[in-house]
Nucleic acid binder design. Structure first.
Length: 439
DNA sequence: TCTGGGGTCCTAGGACCC
DNA sequence: TCTGGGGTCCTAGGACCC
C-alpha cells in the first residue's frame, strides 16, 4: 500500500501557524510581485477565488469580503516543509518527498489491520508538532493514493481515506472526471474523449496498448495504476537534475544593465542551490521574455545555452557565462518582463561518470537480427532476456520487417540498399521494473 | 496599471562514430 | 530472393505536475 500525505492549503497554513488571528478567516497568498493568487484558505475557496488567478481580476471580491492577502515567504514555507517531512520520517522511514507540501509513504511494513488507525495518529501528531493540518490518502498504487487523498479532503471527517480495489472504487471512478486523475490534464482528457473514453472507469477498463498508442507509455501506466497494479515506484529523488532561478520584473525594462543586475543575482542564487546539494553543473542556459500578455508591445522570447568545458559550481564562472549568453540574446528594441538562468547537466560532486550513470541513459539495448519472422511476444521476451544486463534501468525494443529498405534499381548498384525515407521504426521504451512485471 | 516559479519525463529524430 | 550491426550524444518540442 502507498500513502499520500498532502498539507492542506499549505502556504496559508504556514502563515496561520505564526499568526493565529488568520484562523477561520478568508486568506490568500500571492506570487512574486503580488501578481497571482497561489494559495487559498477554505474560506477563500468558498468565495470562488480560483487557483492561480491574477490578483487584479479579483480585487473587488477580495475587498468586499475582507479577504486577507499575504506576499509569499518561500524561506518560511521551505522551513515548515522540512519540519513536516522529518516528522513524517519518524513514523514511516521510506518516503518520497514529491513537492514542498506532499510526500508518498511506503506502507508495506505497516500492519494492514492497524493501518488506518496509524494514519490517524500520524495526522494528529503532525498537527501537534508543526501546526500544519494534513490529509492522508491510502491506496494500492500511487495514482490511487492520490485519488484517496482527494477524497480525504472532500469526504472524510478525520482527514484519512482508504481506497482499496472494490466496487466502491469503481463507483468513484464512474463519478469523477478524467482530469481528476493524477497525470491527466485537459489535453489528454480531450484526446481520450475523442476515443469514447469519458470517465476514469472507462479508462481503467480500456486496452492499455491502445492508450499507449494514443497518449504514450505514461497513459498506459495510468491504466494499470487504476487497476491496482503499481507501475510507479517510490523514488527518493536526492538531487535536482536542473536548477532554475527566474523572476518577472515589477515593471518592464530594456536597459541592459538592469538585466545584468537581475541575472547576476539569479545566477548567484542558482549556484548556491547547486552547492547546497553538493552538485556541479555542465551546462548553463539563459532565457529572456517580453511581456506575453501585452498586446501593444513587440514580442520576443529567446534562450541561449552553453556546454562548459569543465563541471563547475563556481558563482563567478556561472555569472560570467550567463553574461556572455545575455550578449547573444539581448536586442535593444524590446521591453523585457522576465529573465532567468537554468543550470543543466548536473552531476553529483565526485561521482564516477563512467559507470552506471551512463548506462541509464540513451539506447541501452538494441536487438536485431536474432528474430526471424515472428511476432510472438514470448519469443521476443525470451531472446531479450538472454542477454540482459541486470544493471539496466531502461530498455528499448524496436522491431523491423521486410520493407524497410529500398531495393536498388539495377545490378550495378546491387549493394546499395537505401533506407526508405518514410519508414518509422516502432519502438517502445520502458522501465526495467515494468518489464519484470510483464514478463 | 496589474497576469508565478520551478520541476520531470517522453517522443522522435538527426548527426556522427566504428 | 532478402538487403549491416551496434552505438553515443544532442536537440527540441510537448506533455504533465505542484
Amino acid at each position: 500500500m502507498y500513502g499520500l500525505v498532502d498539507c492542506n492549503n499549505f502556504y496559508v497554513s504556514c502563515e496561520r501557524v505564526f499568526n493565529p488571528f488568520l484562523r477561520n478567516k478568508p486568506v490568500v497568498v500571492l506570487s512574486n510581485n503580488d501578481g497571482c493568487i497561489i494559495a487559498r484558505s477554505n474560506e477563500a475557496k468558498a468565495l470562488g477565488i480560483p487557483m492561480g488567478a491574477p490578483l487584479h481580476q479579483y480585487k473587488k471580491l477580495i475587498n468586499q469580503n475582507k479577504v486577507l492577502t499575504y506576499s509569499s515567504n518561500y524561506t518560511l514555507y521551505g522551513d515548515m516543509s522540512s519540519r513536516v517531512m522529518s516528522s513524517l520520517k519518524y513514523f514511516v522511514p521510506d518516503i518520497e518527498i514529491y513537492s514542498i507540501d506532499e510526500a508518498f509513504l511506503n506502507l508495506e511494513k505497516i500492519n494492514s489491520l492497524t493501518l488506518l488507525d496509524e494514519m490517524i495518529t500520524i495526522r494528529t501528531l503532525i498537527y501537534q508538532w508543526t501546526g500544519i493540518p494534513v490529509s492522508i490518502g491510502v491506496g494500492p498504487t500511487k495514482t490511487l493514493a492520490k485519488l484517496a487523498n482527494r477524497m480525504a479532503k472532500k469526504h472524510s471527517s478525520n482527514g484519512v481515506y482508504f481506497l482499496p480495489i472494490s466496487n466502491h472504487l469503481n463507483k468513484i471512478l464512474k463519478d469523477i472526471c478524467l482530469e481528476d486523475i493524477w497525470g491527466i490534464s485537459k489535453g489528454w482528457a480531450n484526446r481520450l474523449k475523442s476515443l469514447g473514453i469519458h470517465t476514469p472507469f472507462e479508462l481503467q477498463q480500456s486496452d492499455p496498448r491502445k492508450i499507449r498508442d494514443l497518449i504514450s507509455v505514461v497513459g498506459e501506466r495510468i491504466v494499470y495504476e487504476l487497476r491496482g497494479i503499481p507501475c510507479l515506484n517510490l523514488e527518493v529523488i536526492a538531487a535536482k537534475k536542473s536548477i532554475t532561478v527566474s523572476r518577472s520584473f515589477g515593471s518592464m525594462t530594456n536597459d541592459k544593465n538592469d538585466l545584468k543586475k537581475a541575472l547576476a543575482n539569479y545566477a548567484a542564487r542558482a549556484a548556491e542551490k547547486l552547492r547546497s546539494q553538493s552538485s556541479l553543473c555542465g551546462a548553463i542556459s539563459v532565457f529572456i521574455n517580453t511581456n506575453r500578455f501585452s498586446k501593444k508591445d513587440l514580442q520576443y522570447s529567446n534562450s541561449s545555452s552553453v556546454i562548459l568545458d569543465d563541471l563547475t559550481d563556481s558563482t563567478q564562472i556561472i555569472i560570467q557565462k550567463a553574461f556572455r549568453l545575455l550578449e547573444n540574446l539581448y536586442r535593444p528594441n524590446y521591453n523585457y518582463k522576465k529573465i532567468g538562468v537554468i543550470l543543466l547537466n548536473i552531476e553529483k560532486r565526485g561521482q564516477d561518470l563512467t559507470s552506471e550513470n551512463y548506462v541509464i541513459q540513451g539506447n541501452l539495448f538494441t536487438y536485431s537480427n536474432i528474430l526471424h519472422k515472428t511476432n510472438n511476444q514470448s519469443d521476443i521476451c525470451m531472446k531479450m532476456l538472454d542477454g540482459i544486463n541486470a544493471k539496466m534501468g531502461k530498455m528499448t525494443l524496436f522491431y523491423g520487417s521486410q520493407g524497410i529498405m529500398k531495393q536498388p534499381k539495377n545490378k550495378k548498384e546491387k549493394n546499395n540498399w537505401q533506407m526508405r525515407s518514410n519508414y518509422r521504426s516502432p519502438f517502445y521504451t520502458t522501465n526495467w521494473n515494468d518489464i519484470l512485471k510483464v514478463s
